[in-house]
Nucleic acid binder design. Sequence first.
RNA 1: CGGGACGUGGCUCAGCCUGGUAGAGCACUGGGUUCGGGACUCAGGGGUCGCAGGUUCAAAUCCUGCCGUCCCGACCA
Length: 570
Amino acid sequence: MRLSRYFLPTLREDPAEAEVISHKLMLRAGMIRRLASGIYSFLPLGLRALRKVERIVREEMDRAGALEVLLPLVQPAELWKETDRWDRFGKELLRFKDRKEHDFCLGPTHEEVITDLVRGEVRSYRQLPLILYQIATKFRDEIRPRFGLMRGREFIMKDAYSFDADEEGLDRSYRLMYETYERIFSRCGLRFTAVLADTGAIGGEESHEFMVLAETGEDVIASCPSCGYAANLEMAEAVREYFYPEEEERPLEKVSTPGVRKVEEVAAFLGVPTWKLVKTLLYLVDGKPYAVLVRGDHELNEVKLRRALGAEKVEMADPETVERLTGAPVGFAGPVGLSGLTIIADKAVAGLKNFVTGANEEDAHYVNVNHPRDFKIEAFFDLRNVTEGDLCPRCGKPLELTRGIEVGHVFKLGTKYSEAMGATFLDREGKERPFVMGCYGIGVSRTVAAAIEQNHDENGIIWPLALAPFHAALLTLGADSDLLQASERLYQALWESGVEVLWDERDERPGVKFKDADLIGLPYRVVLGKKFKSEGKVEIKPRRGGETLMLSPDEAVSFLASKVKEAQSS
RNA sequence: CGGGACGUGGCUCAGCCUGGUAGAGCACUGGGUUCGGGACUCAGGGGUCGCAGGUUCAAAUCCUGCCGUCCCGACCA
């Protein structure tokens, strides 16, 4: 492609709308443009990168024996009512009516549609297992879209669904998809890890997330360098036991703490360490009030809370509810004297002596609180986020916390959807049974952003060869006809030998070409300039750094062709 | 949904507090010089100052409402 004829509007300055690096760079490199909040157009360069991811996904899914379909974006409400998700799915489900006043939604995911398709067509265990997938646009009306393609409302996703006759079959399909995902992200040239995950709103039994490791990731991963255990925060079990020093229980005492609410403020005010405080968090769990106790220096994890109580929905009580339950404004809740709700606690609270809590009274705290002397805890659970220093639940060595971007998610769904929708087949004995299902997603557009988030420097993107929109940039520095003719011959020869090259033959100064080349970050930069005129050599420089090669045009072609071939066969 | 910030040529922003003929840099068009890390110069084109109302002799500027965008939080592949 000749750059003078390409559509590549690069920006020299960071656009005001972007905060994270991948978003800034994608805008600056002319890959995407925003149409509305969380909704983006792909420009030619961005589309080429997207297609690279899609192609790898497609090849690997096909290799695994999955079959590609294309399902509708617009879906009728009736289908969603069958699984009750019409009511249960939050506002992310964008609903609307057609001209006949029939309810529809934009598909945020396609379990209902695929289950409907399969229940109509698949009758026998002999047709199983079946794995169907699509690469398509999804729409989720996110509460707060942000970070460009990382959390858009409209996005490209690969979603796959497996149908098996039994649990063993599901295990095989799940394993197959897990391995396929490892192949996909390896081929993309990304550093990633698979972690244990919660199944969330989609529901199901077992789940792993595939995380691209990047400092700027939204998710925290707990991993164990010794044994390879890895889980996201919701799943990482806090196994560390605390043995508190023997202390005599001192008498309960109410102290005045005017205007002091936050843990750090209270600790500083009373001159005690933050771990001697116990936070009392008020929650509505499926509508019922709970007081949840967590040590002052720990953080409650709501997903753990939901799971511990087997609840559908947990939400923090609003200030009015807090006041009604405790008789005090937010910031002074405590377990002593609380009634009409259930008190539970994180395990780390067990055995803590003479701690500090709110007094359910404005500007007052209790000191020397003791359990069970002063109040009663119904049950202890693992409710807190692990922190640096927590121990691996599998091998007991210290855990490390790193950040990642979720690009893939695999679930075992079981029969949740097939039962709800009456999707059944006849087994060997002629008995009707629901399909045992799995579902497997990859955020395709997010993967592009994650790749940039993981691979960039102060000058721009540094594409992994497998995802690069072009393999190389050819810069012609100068406009004399010899140079242009030699460049054109090289350009043709590169394409003919399988090297996708973007030729910058614009009438621009060298600095402009170098800056743009760095910004769009193609893996190799090939320069024809002075050295070519004097010595007949072209300059090849890897974008990632490393030595610059001076080669003849023929050598340059075979060098780049071999690099490309190498990457494609890995 | 709560809190905060912002909205002025395609982009980045100044001007607003203290009302008085709409600006800069980049980008774009034409000329000249330049040519290995975002050149210089001359001449140009391009703006309902987010929208609607109000105050005023006069509103980008002050007031009210709405819309949009971004950030933090709750939520989520």
